[in-house]
């Protein structure tokens, strides 16, 4: 009995010391695990870029830089060029960005500055919830509801009033560049509205009070004092929305008509980078064909990395 007690007493400080050492080792393992996960994350990101470059190597070698401005897309003769897809992507994204920026920013000003508090909160929540609706749902609605509306109402009205412009001439298809741009607008408006609203609500109340005290009207306060102080954040929000429009795939694929031609008319079918990948990737019969599609994916990736990177930098200066 006593021998055991003595032994236990002698062991006690030792075990406490070893416990502390175990803790220290445990801490080290823990920090190492955190760092390892960061490396894994970097590996995943690096792998994304590397795999796309590697997959596109055949096409990069065959067509070189000319891939960007060749408008040939002929799987039979294996002539591939990206221009029709770049054109379609840029046209749909730019139109949708312009429309969505006007609507989204004005709506956000109302929600943040002028709406009764309850209304603003509920509408804001609603718009944020709708931002989460999957793109396949918008695509489905666009194909069966919006496309007929464009063909029978919006298209003819535009042609009657602005038909002298080349962009509104020609046969009106239901699935066309304009429909794609409109569906993209609906999808990115919530993004712009939500971010802009957050930016505006973050502006201190005393700035508004100062402006109002100087005799500015509520609108002058919002438009000439509050809005200019978040301009960079709003540009950032627009870039993020633009990035989303550039890379949006399924909804666009369902309503743009999928024809690789460059047409001045918005009423003619078009094609985007993301859509051609979605449609033809599993049908690519030769290595060069597949490689050309992957190179299109690489172009899309690089462009959106730049656009979104810039957008994030600008929004980040405000929202933290």
């Amino acid at each position: 009995m006593t021998e055991q007690a003595i032994a236990a007493a002698a062991a006690a400080p030792l075990s406490r010391r070893s416990l502390r050492r175990a803790e220290r080792i445990g801490s080290k393992i823990f920090v190492a695990a955190l760092q390892a996960s960061c490396w894994l994350f970097l590996l995943i990101v690096g792998g994304l870029v590397a795999e796309l470059i590697w997959g596109a190597r055949l096409s990069l070698r065959t067509f070189g830089i000319g891939f960007l401005w060749s408008s040939q897309w002929n799987p039979v003769t294996e002539q591939f060029g990206a221009l029709p897809f770049i054109y379609g992507t840029v046209v749909t994204s730019v139109i949708s960005l312009v429309l969505a920026a006007i609507v989204g920013i004005l709506a956000a000003i109302y929600l943040a500055e002028f709406a009764p508090r309850r209304v603003g909160a509920y509408l804001g929540l609603l718009i944020e919830l709708l931002a989460a609706v999957p793109s396949i749902v918008y695509g489905l609605w666009g194909l069966f509801v919006l496309a007929p509306i464009v063909a029978n109402w919006i298209g003819p009205v535009l042609q009657d009033t602005l038909g002298f412009l080349p962009v509104f001439q020609g046969t009106i298809y239901g699935v066309n560049t304009l429909t794609a741009a409109l569906i993209l607008t609906l999808m990115i408006v919530p993004t712009i509205t939500a971010i802009t609203r957050d930016l505006i609500t973050a502006i201190p109340m005393r700035m508004r009070e100062a402006a109002l005290a100087l005799g500015a009207t509520p609108w002058e306060t919002a438009f000439k004092v509050v809005l200019p102080s978040v301009t960079r954040g709003i540009i950032g929000a627009c870039l993020l929305a633009f990035g989303r429009a550039l890379g949006e795939t399924i909804a666009t694929t369902m309503v743009i008509g999928n024809r690789p031609v460059i047409s001045a008319s918005l009423f003619a079918p078009g094609y985007t980078i993301a859509s051609v990948i979605a449609n033809e990737f599993t049908e690519a019969t030769s290595d060069l064909y597949l490689s050309a599609l992957i190179e299109l994916g690489l172009i899309l990736l690089v462009v959106s990395l730049i656009v979104i990177g810039m957008g994030r930098l600008m929004v980040r200066l405000f929202v933290r």
Partner: peptide
């Protein structure tokens, strides 16, 4: 990365 097109 959160904004990279899902197709890529």
């Amino acid at each position: 990365l959160a904004g990279v097109p899902s197709i890529a």
